[in-house]
Amino acid sequence: MTKLVYFAWVRERIGKPDEDLDLPASVVTVGDLLTHLATLGEEYENALQYPDVIRVAINQEHVEHDEPIAGAREIGLFPPMTGG
């Protein structure tokens, strides 16, 4: 099981702040994960329809979309940051 956490409009569109998911072995990279999640239902498809804009953190560190997810305890998905 991998813990997924969502923030800002990604959280709102998916409709939950976090969840534990069993990911298929075919999901190797962050990019694969985004493609896989988009198949889980309309709310995911809506949240992830433009995967290029989604920022991802593995174990609370920023990663690119080609990063392997092996060993990830927690994967965060969120829009570009707007703090400060």
Binding site: F7, A8, A57, H62, G76, F78, P79, P80, M81, T82, G83, G84
Partner: peptide, 9 residues
């Protein structure tokens, strides 16, 4: 901080 600290308004 603006571009990489995880905050959203």
């Amino acid at each position: 901080l603006k571009t990489s600290a995880p905050f959203w308004k």
